[in-house]
Design a protein around this nucleic acid. Structure first.
Lengths: 171, 171
DNA sequence: CATTGACAGTTCTATAAAAGAACTTATGGT
DNA sequence: ACCATAAGTTCTTTTATAGAACTGTCAATG
């Protein structure tokens, strides 16, 4: 499967993975949220090759997650800053960090702590239901096809056509 | 940077990316949350090559996100099911799906809708502060080094050593 | 009893992506 | 003139992925 094919999938997860689902994009975005804005600063703090960094920044700009803002003429230089679309990735970043805190921390404890300016306490992110405010668990959620669904498969209809038999009604 | 190096980083995001930060792992996990459990079912619904699927499942088992449960002897066959560690990835999955719903949906609308069994309403996931319950925004969060932090760099100390100058106090 | 099919992989080869290092371009300072 | 800064680009080598075919084990079928 090509990256481009992922964008076309009738699945919001696949489409988002097309944007952030590679080794580096999420790390680049973490740096963005830590106020890194310039090419060499990304490069130095991530250790990413310059080639790939250029490529990833271009991709994130193309998807409207980052914007290039000129900060000097002659020679023209840009800073990469998060758009609103990019800022909206914050829950993804935070939930990833939180999972790592809980399940991947070593004996020394968490690498970082987060303080909520509103209440001035150290906190963890919690995912709740927009309607009733209760914390969400996988088992309490029921999935329905929406208007953008594809009849047969949520992901890879071509693969299901090819799969002999097709096991209808599996979900 | 090798995948193994990512696991060792003093950063919860990098460590989590070592587990789920590739093209396929998140899609495999989506299938897990949609109750897919068997090799050929993953293969058919994702269109992933069998080679890579075997590799990704092995990796997810190694990290304790999935468990192999035998469902028949002779020939020995296993189902892949989520462990608690795997179930805890749900907020990540949901926040990714939600971002895709908001920012990557085409004109036809969302591919999927989510119903909360507790309140029986269609909902969106919202990330809130564990302490005060308010929705979280990037700008309202302050980051502190935690006990597991590395003095100089949160990510790639080697890269910063190499970066002549080192730009102390950048964050 | 030979055949077909299900299932869970493994083994190939060809192509694409990433790592690693050096090079380019434009400019400003010493 | 020489060095530094910044933001890339251009190489070569190594690694990962795509795509297809193959293997092994059993169960059901003709």
């Amino acid at each position: 499967m090509k990256w481009d094919a992922l964008e076309e999938e009738p699945c919001s997860l696949a489409r988002t993975v097309a944007v952030i689902g590679d080794r580096w994009s999420l790390l680049v975005l973490r740096e963005c949220f830590l106020r890194t804005r310039r090419f060499d600063d990304f490069q130095a703090s991530l250790g990413i090759t310059r080639h790939l960094l250029a490529d990833r920044l271009k991709k994130l700009v193309r998807f409207g997650v980052l914007r290039k803002i000129p900060y000097q003429e002659a020679p023209k230089r840009y800073e990469y800053i998060l758009t609103q679309k990019g800022l909206d990735l914050y829950p993804i970043i935070m939930s990833i960090v939180h999972w790592g805190n809980v399940h991947m921390a070593d004996s020394r404890g968490r690498p970082m702590l987060h303080e909520h300016k509103n209440c001035q306490k150290l906190f963890d992110p919690v995912m709740v239901c927009s309607e009733c405010g209760e914390p969400l668990a996988a088992k309490a959620v029921h999935v329905h096809p929406g208007p953008g669904a594809r009849p047969s498969s949520p992901v890879h209809a071509k693969a299901q056509e090819q799969a002999k038999g097709g096991r209808a009604g599996r979900r």
